[in-house]
């Protein structure tokens, strides 16, 4: 229950590190701002954070003030890291590690890999797609086809992500994979319905999370980050739509009568 006293610079360093980890794992902007100001307030320092999805700016109103700027390049969704950081910031008023230990701990959290590996994520994507196809009233053929399609699309996306293209191209190529595999499945079995397979396989890539986070940012009063998150969601949605539409369009133009 012993609480270490940090100096002003140390507190702000720790707060910026926590904010970076939260923003990188896809937390809402108001949560990042709230965490940073909470961590500084429990040590008696008042700061004004300004956070958008790509940058954290810290400062305050004093004349001998400071300014910290840090940029976040690549973001993903990692709920377990958000949960750990949240627990830490709630326990910050009785934090008993020294400054160096805290920094090392945060650095470890920044570097540590996600709790589920690449192949577990691909399998989960397949299972989620299959369950969605069943929820929309598909039969057993749709279930299996959606499993293959969703898993395959995620494998393609993960393999491409190693080359670091832009997010737009990753999603567009995943969309091409969804369209192509779904068409192949329909060609193989007569009982498959194109619609259910594609909707099921689409669900892991639909940007519901950024969209919902953006609207929650609006509600909390962060208009700028709400705008940019919704723009991001629209970009992802249109890229996946372009990928699928490309394949379906090619199929229409060539006029293959695969599933009727």
């Amino acid at each position: 229950m012993a609480k270490t006293d940090f100096t002003r610079d140390q507190t702000i360093n720790i707060a910026v590190k926590i904010g970076k980890i939260l923003l990188k794992s896809g937390a809402e902007t108001y949560r990042v701002e709230d965490t940073i100001s909470r961590c500084c307030l429990v040590h008696g320092y008042e700061v004004d954070p300004f956070v958008t999805p790509t940058v954290i700016i810290l400062g305050n109103e004093d004349t001998d003030s400071f300014i910290r700027v840090s940029r976040i390049g690549y973001r993903s969704t990692n709920l377990s890291l958000i949960s750990e950081m949240n627990t830490m910031s709630y326990n910050f008023h009785k934090w008993d590690k020294s400054y160096e230990e805290t920094c090392a701990w945060l650095e470890k959290k920044w570097r540590q890999p996600a709790p589920y590996g690449k192949w577990a994520v691909c399998l989960a994507s397949g299972i989620g797609s299959a369950a969605f196809a069943a929820m929309l009233g598909g039969n057993s053929h749709d279930f299996i086809a959606a499993f293959v399609t969703g898993g395959m699309a995620m494998v393609v996306l993960k393999q491409i992500a190693g080359y670091h293209p832009s997010a737009f191209w990753e999603n567009a190529i995943a969309g091409v994979a969804i369209g192509a595999v779904a068409l192949l499945c329909c060609a193989m079995s007569v009982q498959c319905t194109m619609e259910k397979i594609i909707v099921g396989a689409l669900m892991p890539f639909v940007p519901g999370v950024p969209f919902c986070n953006g609207l929650r940012d609006y509600m909390a009063g962060n208009l700028m980050s709400g705008n940019s998150r919704i723009a991001e969601a629209l970009l992802f949605a249109s890229s996946i739509a372009i990928g699928i539409a490309f394949v379906l369009r090619v199929w229409f133009i060539w006029g293959w009568d695969l599933w009727k």
Binding site: I127, G128, P204
Partner: peptide, 15 residues
């Protein structure tokens, strides 16, 4: 099926 889908998505989001 809804709980199956949601659990799969929870793994996808690294819960």
């Amino acid at each position: 099926f809804a709980s199956l889908a949601t659990m799969a998505f929870a793994i996808l989001f690294q819960a």
